[in-house]
Structures are given as structure tokens and as C-alpha cells.
């Protein structure tokens, strides 16, 4: 069952809006994205840095409004819901932010950080203490951590506090924006084990954003690949990883760093990497395929028309003009 649907979401940011000397400009961060999240499943979101993943995450949680498009949560259109009408739903969705250093307030103790969402949903004080302890234990910490400040915790512990805070209101949907990226291997494995365990226990739905493709494959049921604000390929994890069809997905999977590459000296710089952005600022307005200028397979028609996502196999969607 679909828990959340995004329909044609587009987001523009404006910069220099309050500047006297500079011309206001618009940056297109997300462009016409449609995605469906199935209850109890993990959607992995990968793609170019700066392609709009965090923006999409914030839109899902209604932390920022989309410029256009609709967000449907449990069959209910929440796009234009007022903050007060949205409140009861808010506790069902939570986010763990990209930055473990910046996202926890440095002056609050662990206890207070976790209590924050509970308090804002009006949990009576007497239930608070046991709930916090329960949450700490769930994420593999203990009540000894409750009175510490964030800087007295290691990176992994901090990230787990972030997860405990996100789980505090028993959400149905959790967005994990690079939640494990800055962790060392052992801690990363611990947090991944925890996430998988919690999902199995509570049938949570995750949106898992990360750059480490091995990790994404490990946790995700479905994967969506983003480039310049659009989804260029999506499908079940096995399909996308074993049979990538979009040239960008192929490039991405082929770029995974490894010792092997160096030994074979296969890292070729020109062929592999879009060094210069020839299109410059035209990128936001041009009608060409988003991957046009770097695509090894690009044809004339790619310059004229941006392809749409097509279902090429069951549960496998690609937007590329070269694929029938």
C-alpha cells in the first residue's frame, strides 16, 4: 500500500532576493518528480551531489513548500494543508538530517533533545522519562547517555540520538538524509543493523538518501536515481543495480571507487567525468535531456526534447530517448 505519493513536484529556490545590488535569480532544485513510497519498504535515493535529494526530503516532510505539485499522504492531499491541520500527521513522519554536528542543538542534553518532539505533541510529563529510556535502549544507547551534551558523544552516538529523536513520536515514515555517511565502518554497520531491525519490527517506511551505493543496495527495496532535479531511473534494487539502463546510472555504478580501479588504471578522466559545464546557466531553462551534454549515446533528438519516465520492464522505469 502506498503511504506517500509525490505528484509532479517542482521546486525553485530564489537567491539574492533581498539584495540591493544583485539581480534575483532562480535555481531549479527539483523538477517534476513523481515517486511512490510503499508502506514498510525502503526507497533508496541516490544521485549527483546537489541534484535535489535533501530538497525533496524537506518537501516530503512539509518543511518547505514545493513550487508546484502535490504530496499525498495516506490518500490525503497534504500539499496545502495549514500547519494546524497538518499537526496530527506530522508526528507520523520524521527526518534524520544530513549533518550530525549541526542538527542537534549543542546546549540541550540528550534527554531534552529526545523530549522535544514528545513535548510538542503534548505528552504528559510522567510518561516522558520512561519513553526516553525506552528509545535510548532501542537505538543501542543507555540511560547513562541521557544527561550528556552532544559534544560529549561520538559521531555514531550522536547519529543514534538523531534516530531516537526521529522515532520518539512512533512515526510511520522516516527520511534518513545521509544518516550514516559520516560514520566509521563499524558504527555505520551498527546503525544499519538497527535501522533494519526497527523496520522489521514496526513496518516502518524509509527514504534512505546516501552516496555509498553499496550501503544503499544493502538497505533499499527500491531505488530512484536523480540527476539535476529529475528522477532518471527508478525500480527495484536488483533491477537497477544489475541492469542499469540510463547512461547516468551506468556512469554512477561504474564510478564506485575501488582499489581495483587504480591497479588496472581504468580511471580515465575525460571519458568518465563531465569536467566542464558547457551548458552553464542554460541548464535550468533548456529543453534538452538533463544528461545531454555528457551522454555518450546522445542523439539529435536528445537536444530537443527531455524524455519522460517510461516503464521498460515491470517495476523498472527509465527516462532516456534511446531506450524503447
Amino acid at each position: 500500500m502506498a503511504i506517500l505519493r509525490l505528484r509532479n513536484i517542482t521546486k525553485f529556490y530564489e537567491i539574492n532576493r533581498n539584495s540591493f545590488s544583485l539581480r534575483p535569480q532562480r535555481i531549479k532544485a527539483v523538477d517534476n518528480v513523481c515517486l511512490t513510497l510503499t508502506e514498510g519498504m525502503t526507497l533508496g535515493l541516490v544521485g549527483e551531489s546537489g541534484c535535489g535529494k535533501s530538497t525533496l526530503a524537506k518537501i516530503i516532510l512539509k518543511l518547505i513548500p514545493p513550487t508546484s505539485g502535490e504530496i499525498i499522504f495516506k490518500e490525503k492531499n497534504i500539499t496545502r494543508l495549514s500547519e494546524s491541520a497538518f499537526r496530527p500527521l506530522r508526528r507520523q513522519m520524521q527526518i534524520v538530517f544530513q549533518d550530525p554536528y549541526g542538527s542537534l542543538s549543542p546546549r540541550l542534553t540528550v534527554k531534552d533533545i529526545i523530549a522535544e518532539p514528545l513535548r510538542s505533541f503534548g505528552m504528559p510529563k510522567i510518561f516522558m522519562r520512561p519513553r526516553i529510556e525506552e528509545l535510548l535502549i532501542q537505538v543501542g544507547l543507555n540511560s547513562g547517555h541521557a544527561d550528556r551534551l552532544p559534544q560529549q558523544l561520538s559521531g555514531g552516538e550522536r547519529q543514534r540520538v538523531g534516530i531516537a529523536r526521529a522515532l520518539a513520536t512512533s512515526p510511520r515514515l522516516v527520511v534518513l538524509d545521509e544518516a550514516v555517511s559520516s560514520l566509521d565502518l563499524s558504527t555505520q554497520a551498527q546503525v544499519l543493523n538497527l535501522l533494519v531491525k526497527l523496520q522489521q519490527k514496526y513496518a516502518l517506511t524509509y527514504v534512505f538518501i546516501a552516496h555509498n551505493l553499496g550501503v544503499v543496495r544493502y538497505v533499499s527495496d527500491r531505488v530512484a536515481v536523480m540527476l539535476r532535479g529529475t528522477v532518471v531511473e527508478k525500480g527495484s534494487t536488483g533491477e537497477v543495480y544489475n541492469n542499469p539502463l540510463h547512461p547516468y546510472t551506468q556512469l554512477l555504478l561504474g564510478s564506485m571507487p575501488s582499489l581495483h580501479k587504480r591497479l588496472l588504471r581504468t580511471r580515465k578522466k575525460e571519458a568518465e567525468l563531465p569536467r566542464k559545464d558547457e551548458r552553464g546557466t542554460a541548464a535550468d531553462t533548456s529543453s534538452a535531456c538533463v544528461f545531454f551534454s555528457f551522454c555518450p549515446k546522445s542523439r539529435k533528438e536528445c537536444a530537443e526534447k527531455n524524455p519522460v519516465l517510461k516503464e521498460v520492464a515491470p517495476h523498472h522505469w527509465v527516462s532516456c530517448a534511446c531506450i524503447e
Binding site: 549527483e48 544530513q98 564510478s255 580511471r267
Partner: peptide, 8 residues
């Protein structure tokens, strides 16, 4: 914080 193509 970088994707693999930019890492590369």
C-alpha cells in the same frame, strides 16, 4: 558528502 562521480 559527495556522490561517486564527483568523488572520482
Amino acid at each position: 558528502a559527495l556522490d561517486v562521480t564527483i568523488q572520482a
